[in-house]
């Protein structure tokens, strides 16, 4: 195959591979973009015993993977990864670098961009190439109520962090061929200035709500603890999780874990059912990444109803019961 003019790099963020597929989603989008600017798609993987991820990235669209595999890289380290990546970028000169907007990515990418003295757009929800061949990065502002389109006209590489769930991953192909470039750990690597005292994977519970593709959220409008419990049955039928507003948690209709809202209680389901919730900003701050929203409220003017795709004006408890019945009828087998 002929040498490509450019390369597009995707940072391999494998730490939560099974829950967070953003790296795969970026490999997919990078392949689309690569066709527009004659580029090859590369991934980087830093860590220890990372063969599995290298294989996965090739199967999902990387034609080359730069791998630095070393025991010193067992734990994610922003300090070390930034230095490693900076050196690789200076050596190979990618045109574009895409990083998943995970907690790690959002700390790593700004520091890398600063060292490279280039531009970075945060938390993108769209990536395209314009007529001048520039990467057009669409990013939300003001909690998603505005979108901004941003380019980096001169500095290289063009860098973006991208929100998980925006792009579709390519189905894996374990026959795909990819070149593996082994990068030795530089022996003049500066020491890590941060000491890791402990790192524990969080209980699965909290992750489940945050990662669920269907969430059934209930508010005070459910009327009683008993009726609220029906939401759990609805969630079960839908294969989803239950979320709650603050008054509901205070009333002990739901556990503290179920709270959705500001203070980092964010969810991003593809489908969100919202029952008897007024839509206070402290709550809606936590659902701004939700996809299709179905809201049920007696009051058609509630803020929650205004931000819904489908606004159902009716009693929340009754709609919940009707939904369960109808779903059970339709989901055969």
């Amino acid at each position: 195959m002929a040498e490509k003019k450019h390369s597009i790099w995707v940072f391999g963020d494998y730490r939560n591979y099974f829950q967070n597929r953003v790296t795969l989603q970026l490999l997919s989008r990078a392949n689309d973009l690569a066709k527009m600017i004659d580029a090859e798609v590369c991934a980087t993987v830093f860590g220890h015993e990372v063969d599995e991820w290298v294989g996965e990235y090739i199967a999902h669209g990387a034609s080359k993977v730069y791998v630095c595999d070393h025991p010193a890289l067992t734990f994610y380290s922003t300090d070390i990864y930034v230095v490693l990546m900076e050196r690789l970028v200076r050596q190979y000169g990618p045109e574009i670098i895409l990083v998943g907007a995970t907690s790690f990515g959002r700390e790593f990418a700004p520091r890398l961009a600063k060292r490279l003295k280039t531009g970075l757009t945060a938390d993108c929800v769209g990536l395209d190439i314009n007529d001048e061949g520039l990467l057009v990065q669409t990013a939300p502002a003001f909690g998603g109520s505005l979108l901004t389109r941003i380019v980096t006209p001169e500095k290289r590489p063009q860098m973006a962090t991208v929100r998980p769930g925006v792009f579709q991953e390519i189905p894996h192909n374990y026959q795909a061929a990819g070149e593996i470039v082994n990068v030795p750990l530089p022996d003049d690597l500066p020491g890590d200035r941060i000491r890791l005292v402990s790192s524990e994977r969080q209980a699965a519970r909290e992750q489940k709500l945050g990662d669920a593709s269907v969430v059934v959220c209930g508010g005070r409008g459910m009327g009683s603890r008993k009726k609220f419990r029906n939401l759990y049955e609805l969630a079960r039928v839908l294969g989803g999780e239950v979320g709650a507003t603050r008054p509901v948690v205070y009333a002990k209709w739901a556990d503290e874990d179920a709270l959705v809202g500001q203070a980092d209680k964010h969810i991003s389901p593809k489908v969100l059912f919202s029952f008897g919730i007024s839509g206070a900003i402290q709550h809606t701050a936590g659902i701004k990444n939700a996809g299709f929203i179905i809201a049920v409220n007696k009051n058609p003017n509630a803020a929650m109803m205004k931000m819904a795709d489908v606004a159902i004006v009716a009693d929340a408890g009754q709609v919940c019961t009707a939904l369960i019945r109808e779903l059970k009828k339709r989901i055969r087998s």
Binding site: R15, E107, R195, L196, S198, S199, E200, Q202
Partner: peptide, 9 residues
Amino acid sequence: VSDHFLETL
């Protein structure tokens, strides 16, 4: 909390 990990640093 960083990507589902509770870290002490």
